[in-house]
Simulated assay, not measured.
Amino acid sequence: MGGEANKCKERLNIMQPVTTVQDQIMWHPPDIGAYKLNVDASLHIGECMFTLGLVVRDDRGQFIRGNNMRLAGEVSVMEAEATDSQLVVHALDTENVYQLEVGHIIDDCKEKLNERADLSVLHVKKQANKAAHLMARVPCLLNNYNYFISPPDLLFEMLTSEFPT
Rank of each mutant, 00 (worst) to 15 (best):
G2W: 13
G3I: 10
E4D: 14
N6E: 14
K9D: 11
K9A: 13
R11S: 13
R11A: 15
R11P: 06
L12G: 08
L12V: 09
I14M: 14
D23C: 01
Q24R: 12
M26H: 05
H28W: 01
P29C: 00
I32A: 15
K36Y: 02
K36L: 00
L37C: 05
N38W: 01
V39I: 09
D40T: 00
S42M: 13
S42N: 13
L43A: 13
H44I: 06
E47C: 11
M49E: 15
F50G: 10
T51Q: 09
G53P: 01
R57M: 04
D58V: 07
G61T: 02
I64C: 03
I64K: 03
R65M: 05
R65K: 09
G66I: 03
N68E: 00
M69L: 11
L71F: 03
L71W: 05
L71M: 11
A72T: 10
G73N: 04
M78Q: 15
E81Y: 08
T83S: 13
T83W: 12
S85K: 04
Q86Y: 06
Q86I: 09
L87W: 06
V89C: 11
A91T: 04
T94C: 10
N96Q: 11
V97W: 00
V102R: 02
I106A: 00
D108H: 00
E111I: 01
L113W: 03
E115C: 09
L119W: 15
V121W: 14
V121Y: 13
K125T: 14
Q127A: 14
N129F: 11
K130C: 12
H133R: 05
L134G: 08
M135W: 04
A136Q: 04
V138M: 12
P139M: 09
C140R: 04
C140D: 07
L141P: 12
L142E: 04
Y145W: 05
Y147W: 14
Y147A: 10
P151L: 03
P164E: 00
T165R: 11
